[in-house]
Design a protein around this nucleic acid. Structure first.
Length: 833
DNA sequence: ATAGGGTTAG
């Protein structure tokens, strides 16, 4: 009685419970499952969501029983609510689920394809030691099977037996086989069959059907035939079994064999189901066997079935690809006879059938003739879609203008679509949608915005969310922030609620522009809407700020985002680490790295790579090595990039041996070195005055590993050889590089000039200067190599062998900072700085 | 009808 008083007080506001209350006042209240089910349903569906500790729920808890729980479970529309309720019920004292409540939630989850909770459920049913009949076990197993949880089904089947919860019969076994038949685990099926016959179970049709299925899935012809014959001998053959085999033949590419089988079926008067026809025709078409597909299509119609729209769609699609308008129109006419309504997809395919405008006109005449205005609009919309998809956005735009009733005579291309005697339908929202979308993709944003305005102003057609989103996103990708904000304001004014996509398009634009304040403002607004900002946009903001050396600001931004309750991921932070490293703030980067880890984030390989690069560049190779150990200990597998950065670090800090050792270890670790690895080593070896080894490494890369060095690799080698005083060999590689259409830059030419000068080989140095000028690569005034190249020119000017050629170059104005007057006045020393 | 961003070589 006490419980009822409690209930009366708590549940007053629910009208649905009126009769419950009436009964509460009678001396002996009848408290039925139906009433309770209504109350529970009501409490669980009310908004905002009920907490499991809700006092009303606590009051109802003592009345729970399995039958009630089953009723309530089936009363929910969404699996989430059902699951939430089931979990709540599981935790109520004094209540225990039985096999039927487990099966109820299992079937709900299975239908919703919620595999994770279903898997958990399969463990829960065991844990709860819930006894079940073989039938109940079978049902549960089938739910697992439908969701593709074959392993779970199989292990549950064994465990319920070892726990003594259920002893399967033939039905339960059949259910298990059916679950396994979704896979191609032949062994599993064989084992279970053996188990069944050991236990003296007799195979029936439902045992053998999944067996056939699994052999077919696994492509095991031989076994499949054995089973098929076994089924046939026992007189179990039916249309379904035939169709399994026929479909298997089809999937094995043996469409003709499948067709023979169909003829056998016909001869034996086995009935086909509609589904068999549909599945086989689709299968034949997947094997590109239009001939057989059409034959079967005829058989289907002769058997009295009306083909479904999917068949017309796929067949018309085939004719559309082959541009066979007549055939497609034939099918279209047939559809109309059968009263199958064509959808947009089919009409679009019909339009794509047309090879030219003549055919298009014919099509429109033929199919537009007896369409009502609404259908005509759909037809025109399909045409708009086809035009947009064929990059004829201008034509689509003109057509829409015609549909808007604007005269086509003034229009450049509009008259193509002004067919006399034709009624041109008015556009609807999706006509605008298609064209606005196309205009956005073509970057014609002003036209898109114009159409958007015309839409409501000229024909009073309200833009929908999709159109607004596409337009905003189009404007944003052209960085037209103000225009998109204007559209957003209009949306809000007209009562259209922006979606997460709307806000994120704008958010991304603000990030690209590095508008930190604007982005944070928008995040605040988004939070109110319950929209999450896409972290990739935060990463973009970080990248952009870092590009402008504002890594510290980037970190601040990430902090502020955290402050708003949105947690950036490792990628965003990695971008920030890299930004800090690029402004030589390795310690700050390290500090941030450690902070993030302490906050429970898991740095990945790229994050470690970035940090290691930073340390190596700061000549703190030992610390980088420590990080390598750390990442390996955490189970991360270093990548080629990891090793490349370390190799660079070792090379630049005098540990060439370590670098070379790493190269050979990379092979052992299955991390094949790439061009970057080799280039790093070539550079390192040359810088240490070891050109022979550099050339060996180079040869290993080119000859043994077959890697193709790029511009940077070649330039590293040429430059390196020059640095080692071997300009003649360097020139050989320079020629090789040029023959592969790669362009050496001023840095490389300057190195060559200097190296030849060092050998006092002024004529070859001159040649290099001339080539550099010819290629337009003489270092400009802001170039680091400008002074070196200039000094070289002056030196060549002073040598009688080369001075006249150099004078010519100067006279032609080819050497920045040196003019003829400098040469005449011989005040050259000051002109190059 | 709606995603995908961060690291390595002269």
């Amino acid at each position: 009685m006490k419980a009822f008083c409690l209930l009366r007080n708590r549940l007053k506001p629910f009208p649905i419970n009126n009769n419950v209350f009436r009964r509460c006042f009678s001396p002996l209240p009848i408290y039925t499952n139906t009433n309770l089910a209504h109350q529970l349903h009501f409490i669980f569906t009310k908004r905002p969501a009920t907490s499991p500790d809700d006092p009303d729920l606590r009051a109802l808890s003592p009345f729970l029983n399995p039958k009630l729980v089953e009723t309530v479970l089936y009363s929910f529309q969404s699996w989430k609510l059902a699951h939430f309720f089931f979990t709540w019920a599981s935790n109520q004292q004094g209540y225990r689920h039985n096999a039927y409540t487990f099966n109820a939630i299992a079937s709900i989850l299975s239908r919703a394809r919620q595999n994770a909770p279903l898997r958990a459920l399969s463990e829960q049913i065991l844990r709860s030691r819930c006894p079940m009949t073989p039938g109940a076990l079978g049902f549960f197993i089938r739910c697992l099977g439908c969701a593709g949880l074959v392993e779970e089904a199989n292990s549950l089947f064994d465990q319920v037996q070892s726990e003594g919860l259920c002893f399967p019969n033939v039905y339960a076994y059949n259910c298990l086989l059916e679950a396994v038949s979704k896979s191609n685990c032949v062994d599993l099926v064989d084992a279970r069959l053996k188990e069944m016959s050991d236990r003296g179970f007799v195979f029936d049709k439902y045992t053998l059907t999944p067996v056939l299925q699994v052999y077919c899935n696994a492509g095991r012809f031989d076994k499949a035939f054995d089973v098929f014959n076994m089924i046939s001998d026992r007189g179990f053959l039916d249309g379904y079994l035939f169709s399994i085999l026929a479909l298997a033949f089809t999937k094995w590419g043996q469409v003709d064999k499948a067709f023979e089988l169909i003829e056998v079926m016909e001869a034996r008067n086995v009935d086909f189901t509609e589904k068999t026809f549909i599945v086989l025709i689709h299968g034949f078409l997947k094997q590109s066997r239009l001939d057989r597909a059409l034959q079967l299509f005829d058989k289907m119609k002769n058997s009295g079935f009306v083909p479904d729209i999917s068949l017309y769609d796929v067949l018309i699609g085939v004719f559309s690809t082959a541009k066979k308008l007549d055939k497609a129109l034939g099918l279209y006419a047939e559809m109309k006879e059968f009263n199958v309504q064509p959808d947009t997809g089919i009409i679009t395919k019909l339009i794509s059938c047309c090879n030219d405008e003549g055919e298009l006109k014919r099509l429109f005449k033929e199919i537009g003739r007896d369409m009502n205005l609404e259908a005509l609009t759909m037809l025109y919309n399909s045409l708009l879609t086809v035009l947009v998809n064929n990059d004829s956005i201008d034509k689509a735009y003109s057509l829409l203008r015609v549909m808007l009733g604007e005269s086509c005579s003034n229009d450049l291309q509009g008259d193509e679509f002004c067919w006399e005697n034709d009624i041109v339908p008015s556009p609807n929202a999706s006509s605008f949608g298609v064209v606005i979308d196309g205009l956005c993709k073509a970057g014609k944003l002003d036209l898109a915005v114009g159409l958007f305005r015309d839409m409501s102003q000229k024909i009073g057609c309200k833009p929908n969310l999709l159109i607004c989103n596409n337009l905003i996103s189009g404007l944003c990708s052209s960085h037209r922030m103000e225009d998109s904000l204007e559209i957003l304001r209009e949306m809000e004014k007209s009562g259209l609620v922006p979606s997460p996509f709307t806000h994120n398009a704008i958010f991304g634009c603000l990030c690209k522009r590095m508008d930190v304040a604007g982005a944070l403002d928008l995040i605040k607004k988004m939070r109110v809407h319950g929209h999450e900002p896409w972290i990739k946009h935060c990463t973009l903001m970080v990248k952009e700020l870092c590009k402008h050396k504002k890594a510290v600001e980037a970190c601040k931004f990430l902090d502020d985002v955290v402050e708003e309750g949105f947690i950036p991921d490792m990628i965003a932070y990695s971008a920030a680490f890299d930004g800090l490293i690029r402004i030589h703030e390795v310690d700050l980067a390290m500090e941030l790295f450690r902070d993030i880890v302490a906050r429970g984030n898991y740095p990945d390989v790229v994050a470690y790579n970035t940090m290691m690069k930073g340390l190596c560049q700061a000549k703190r190779v030992a610390e980088a090595e420590e990080l390598l150990k750390e990442m390996v200990m955490k189970g991360l597998v270093p990548s080629v990039v990891t090793y490349n950065s370390l190799i660079d670090g070792w090379c630049k800090n005098g540990s060439l041996e370590a670098a070379m050792r790493c190269l050979s270890e990379m092979f052992d670790k299955g991390r094949e070195p790439n061009v970057i690895t080799y280039t790093t080593l070539v550079n390192g070896l040359c810088n240490s005055g070891r050109p022979e080894e550099a050339l060996m490494v180079w040869n290993e890369m080119v000859a043994e590993k077959g890697l193709a060095p790029g511009e940077i690799a070649f330039m590293a080698l040429v430059h390196g050889l020059c640095k080692c005083g071997r300009p003649n060999e360097a020139v050989v590689h320079l020629r090789e590089m040029k023959s592969r259409e790669m362009k050496p830059d001023g840095y490389v030419y300057t190195a060559l000039v200097s190296a030849f000068l060092a050998q006092l080989n002024h004529p070859l140095a001159l040649e290099m200067v001339e080539e550099m000028v010819r290629e337009g690569r003489f270092p400009g005034k802001l170039d680091k190599n400008h002074a070196i190249a200039g000094d070289a020119v002056i030196e060549l000017l002073r040598d009688s062998r080369t001075s006249s050629s150099i004078r010519d170059l100067i006279a032609e104005g080819n050497i920045p900072s040196i003019s003829m007057s400098d040469v005449e006045s011989e005040s050259l020393d000051g002109c190059i700085t």
